[in-house]
Amino acid sequence: MIDPRSPITKLRRNRAVLFSIFILAIVVVAAVIGPMLLPTAQVTRNSLLPPSPDHLFGTDLNGRDLFYRVVLGAQISVFVGVAGATVSFLFGTVYGLISGYSGGSTDAAMMRLVDIFYAIPRLILLLVLISALDPLIRQQMERIGVPQLVGYSKVLILVLCLGLTEWLTMARIVRGQVLSLKSQQFVLAARSIGQTHFNIIFRHLFPNLLGVVIVYLTLTVPSVILDESFLSFLGVGIQAPLASWGLLLSDATQVINPVKSYWWLLVFPALAMSLTLLALNFLGDGLRDSFDPRVKK
């Protein structure tokens, strides 16, 4: 039987959401298996070729095939987005759970800290954090002896820093939910049979939050991808030979000039990135409209 008011039915009726899921599936598949399928020698001697059957998206200033670069960029951008959002999810949820569950002065102090972080512009914090921590991490990696990973130290630091600056909203939402949940009967029941606080928090409260948290996780991913591209654009994030959409766009703006416009350098990465972000935002909005009880239709 189909209940017209159930969230799943609402979601199925939303064509924008279905289309978004379709686009995201393509992007994820391309990101995961694309770089394996394409031949690795994607460097030609011809720089700045316009799109042609040989090079679908043309080539860049160094003669690299742009299609390959965009797929590679998808891999890193999507990975950083998902991993960063996961870090923010873990941190924000645990923080919010503890804060909301403890209540009283602990809660007040923890929320004050969140307020302070809110007052500091996130991207400024990110720039300072990354420039301070990146050399440290690279040194450590070289010392431990994993030199093949050194190239990826930027990816690691980006995931960590983005995750650690994006958790604030998540913490606030989780705390709010916990505050209203913890006065309900099932928490009292759990406590009366002698459950530990740890068990109450993670086995009783946490499953009840999952719906709301997942909705906001979908909205965090595009925000992390956007921040990553911002940093790469400014030259603090991903660096060549790796690629991310922000880096590709930064390369593109460098060669724009009034004499000759190399439009393909700009259009294709921009299209890939905008479509992905648009799909993620549509999906997040759709999920929120269907699952979040606070949004009235």
Binding site: S229, F230, N281
Partner: peptide
């Protein structure tokens, strides 16, 4: 939603291509 999804370094160069170059 489109404007929120497009980063400024996409909107900016697009505007430049349109209104300053073409």
């Amino acid at each position: 939603l489109l404007a929120i999804s497009l980063p400024s370094f996409v909107i900016g160069p697009m505007l430049v291509l349109l209104f300053a170059i073409n």
